[in-house]
């Protein structure tokens, strides 16, 4: 990976790609909006680019004697996505694993292989951030993604690709400068952060604490829809007469319909079961299957919750209930 390259502020204009194929997440826009052209499309989180909130899968039509099925494929057109480390980790370490694990999700794959990621260093952590607790950090980077640090007058870029052909060589001094900056931001991370990450939570499945923890939850889906790692979807159909289409859309474990069985039985009938499942999936079940937690510490759910539920605080409260912690 090329190290320590500095590009001028207008480096952006050199990218030869259609502007509507450039995405910037809402959060990245808020922090670094001035660096990017207005033509770029702003998305809520990176997952929206790869896994949209609604997507047609196929159309069908009764053609007199047989059903005709027309598959919908995405174009796989080259796109650029600029996002913060917590959002990038959600794609690289979570949704990629989920959707590209066998069987491969075709549309996700077509979009993903055409997507170039730019990770923007996080220079202004918010009070809701706790990325370091879950293995990330404000300067988290990935080998295959461009890493950018917007500065006052120029931008530090680390990575491969033709983009760098336009840049000037930086050198050792800049590398040191970047390390100092990283240290400074990491020291600024909001405190106190939960200092413990729960393990083997299935021992706590029947704990009384879940009643208290879940009590104020409204069972709305704000946390799940805004979460960059929540990937659950539903498949629905729209039809009129002899034709229609099948599509998928986001679903949320907070909703009753999510676990509703044919016949009317619901294995997660109340707020407590839904809430417990959400946190156990984030902190335990996903970990068991994929070896990492389903949370990148971005804190969006904390900021969005109308009733002040915080995953960081849930972790703290589980700790209090855990005699081994």
């Amino acid at each position: 990976m090329s190290e320590g390259l500095i590009a001028k502020r207008k480096w952006w204009e050199w990218i030869e790609t259609k502007k509507d194929r450039i995405f910037l997440t809402e959060r990245a826009k808020k922090r670094y909006g001035e660096w990017f052209p207005a033509e770029g499309k702003v998305v809520k989180s990176g997952k929206e680019v790869l896994f949209p909130s609604g997507e047609e899968m196929y159309r069908y039509l009764w053609a007199g004697e047989e059903w005709k099925i027309e598959e919908r494929e995405v174009s796989g057109e080259f796109s650029f996505l600029f996002l913060l480390p917590c959002e990038a980790r959600a794609i690289i370490e979570v949704t990629d694993k989920v959707f590209l694990h066998l069987p491969v999700d075709k549309n996700y794959w077509l979009r993903r292989k055409a997507l170039s990621l730019g990770i923007l260093a996080c220079l202004q952590p918010e009070p809701t951030c706790f990325c370091s607790l879950v293995g990330g950090g404000p300067f988290w980077r990935d080998e295959e993604a461009l890493f950018l640090v917007p500065r006052k007058e120029d931008i530090y870029i680390q990575g491969e690709g033709e983009l760098l052909a336009f840049s000037e060589e930086g050198g050792e001094k800049i590398k040191e400068e970047m390390q100092a900056l990283q240290q400074e931001v990491e020291n600024e991370l909001p405190s106190p952060l939960p200092s413990y990450f729960p393990q083997e939570l299935y021992h706590h499945f029947e704990d009384e604490e879940w009643n208290e923890l879940s009590w104020r939850c409204l069972n709305c889906g704000a946390c799940t829809f805004l979460c960059p790692t929540c990937y659950c979807f539903d498949i629905q159909v729209k039809m009129w007469g002899d034709e229609g289409y099948r599509f998928r859309c986001y679903d949320s474990c907070m909703y009753s319909e999510y676990t509703m069985m044919a016949g009317g039985h619901n294995p997660r009938p109340t707020t407590k079961e839904k809430f417990r499942n959400r946190f156990l999936h984030k902190l335990e079940f996903f970990y068991e299957r994929y070896g990492r937690s389903l949370c990148t510490g971005c804190g969006r759910c904390i900021a969005a919750c109308p009733n002040g539920i915080s995953i960081a605080r849930v972790i703290e409260e589980l700790k209090e209930a855990d005699p081994d912690a």
Binding site: K44, S53, L218, N219, C220, G221, A222, T224, F225, L226, S252, Y255, A304, P306, N307
Partner: peptide
């Protein structure tokens, strides 16, 4: 609107 239903549930 992302139809999270926070309005309805609140």
């Amino acid at each position: 609107c992302i139809r999270c239903y926070a309005c309805r549930n609140a």
